[in-house]
Nucleic acid binder design. Structure first.
Lengths: 128, 128
DNA sequence: GCAAATTAATGATTTATTCAAG
DNA sequence: CTTGAATAAATCATTAATTTGC
């Protein structure tokens, strides 16, 4: 079975990479002309039509936003649900209990200060 | 000498099985709380810290995705290798690439967008 | 069989993104 | 326009598998 006559466009990896690269470099809602150029370029890698490009950017933009919103709301739930401390302190507590290597006493102000200055991943004991 | 001071965490088989089972059942980017719980549970089977759990899920997720992508592109290569669909009938899309930047008047992107949004079939070359 | 040498896996770091708040 | 928060991608580095010659 060479190919079932799929009713909808299916991007090849090359097409997908190019589209993602364009998105990464700022393209969000390409104009009609841009869409036509993009389509022409991508058709070197497989069948594609303008509407596919149009829909791809629409969907990708929407889904990126969705992802971000889900992440945000999940974290807000975490932060707001009850007594739990924010990530920073949770991980500090955990590291402290599991690994007493760094034995700086927890002066509240200082540990908080350290926590606030730690980096996004929060797991890196030695950083930058 | 109990153990050579290994510089990095090395999961025990039990720990690995549990982590993989969690991943299989949907855990991808566990929250701080989840990481705490998982770490507490896994430390019954050997030394482990929160950051190890965090890194494990990061890496595992990324590498599973990698595997999938490689499989996909190999699949595509196979599909396309026999096909040699060089260049389709180049619809009016292609011609459109050569379109001189419609320099009549700068059509505002927004109105263009609206038009496209209501009629994506405008990008269809000939039909449907 | 057994280590040294080489390769494959994978833990840990760094870098580049994302959206949206300020 | 800049920055905060949270990754995901890319990369570095070390451990485990394995290959190889003896």
């Amino acid at each position: 079975m060479p190919q079932s006559p799929s009713s909808r466009w299916c991007p090849t990896p090359e097409q997908l990479m190019i589209l993602e690269e364009m998105y990464r470099s700022g393209v969000r809602t390409p104009s009609a002309q841009q869409i036509q150029q993009i389509t022409a370029h991508l058709s070197n890698y497989g069948r594609i039509e303008g509407k596919n490009v149009f829909y791809w950017f629409q969907n990708h933009k929407a889904r990126e936003r969705q992802k971000l919103r889900r992440r945000l709301s999940r974290h807000y739930q975490l932060l707001c649900s009850g007594h739990s401390l924010p990530h920073h302190q949770l991980y500090c507590m955990q590291d402290a209990t599991a690994f007493p290597q760094s034995r700086h006493h927890a002066t509240p102000t200082h540990s908080l200060h350290l926590v606030l200055h730690s980096h996004p991943t929060l797991f890196l004991p030695s950083h930058q």
